[in-house]
């Protein structure tokens, strides 16, 4: 007989509710059941109006970020077996406005990803290789940014970051990581452009290295490390700019 677990989900319907309210469900599960499968079975059999984002169910698309007992996680990679004997409390991803039930407004996060010029900007005076040629990039050069290119844009690090909670202007872990990913790509020449954002108070300098973003990141991208590396780069940039004449 499959075990049972009580799951309390925070609901919010903008037309009817002034503020969120809780609704509890009883769900059967086996060793393989993920929270996403549980939510889908609740939606199919108990509460069809429950809304949440999901798609790939293999922790690669980044749709199903939500708070599980206060910890930001991907629903598809959270297993009920790890909560046996406890209750599960599911809330929408922290630090984002709640649109409806477990769906949050990620537009601030997505806008920040777009603001940082996340594309290869060819180096000045160096033309891109021809149509049938690639940039030469050794595995060592690839390794410098590879880990930071694994970000699936799920927004969990923004939910984990107290600095983003306190100051929504903060560019945030994922955006700063993406900047570092492109700055360190041997093919890119846009570092000077992107450092303008990094050097601001709302850039790397809002980070007080709590480190919880790296703790919660479901793909082990370690954004906290990217930000510290960003601070080192920004500090170097600050020093260099001191000696450069103002007029330059």
């Amino acid at each position: 007989m499959a075990d049972k677990i009580k799951i309390t989900v925070q609901r919010y319907r903008p037309e009817q509710d002034r503020e969120p309210w809780d609704q509890s469900f009883e769900v059967e599960y086996t060793r393989e059941t993920s929270l996403l499968e549980a939510l889908n079975s609740i939606k199919d059999t108990q509460e069809p109006t429950l809304s949440f984002r999901w798609s790939c169910r293999m922790a690669i698309c980044g749709s199903c970020g939500m708070m599980v007992n206060g910890v930001p996680k991907l629903a598809c990679k959270t297993f009920l077996r790890d909560y046996a004997g406890q209750e599960m409390r599911i809330e929408p991803l922290a630090n984002f406005p709640v649109e409806r039930d477990l769906v949050v407004d990620l537009s601030d996060f997505i806008e920040k990803l777009e603001r940082i010029k996340p594309y290869i900007i060819p180096k000045k005076g160096e033309s891109q290789p021809g149509e049938q040629r690639e940039y030469i990039q050794t595995p060592a050069q690839l390794e410098k940014y590879r880990q930071f290119s694994m970000c699936i844009n799920c927004g969990i690090c923004y939910a984990a970051c107290p600095q983003y909670k306190l100051n929504k202007e903060f560019l945030g872990p994922a955006a700063l990581t993406l900047i570092y990913r492109y700055n360190e790509d041997s093919r890119d020449g846009g570092k000077e452009e992107r450092m303008k954002l990094v050097n601001q108070d709302t850039g790397v300098w809002s980070c007080s290295f709590v480190g919880y973003c790296s703790e919660c990141c479901p793909k082990g991208v370690d954004p906290a490390s990217a930000i510290q590396l960003g601070k080192v780069e920004s500090a170097k940039d600050y020093l260099i700019s001191m000696f450069k004449k103002k007029g330059e």
Partner: peptide, 12 residues
């Protein structure tokens, strides 16, 4: 500095 944060000094 007006164009950027002075945090590098204090952070250093």
């Amino acid at each position: 500095r007006k164009d950027r944060s002075d945090e590098p000094i204090y952070w250093g």
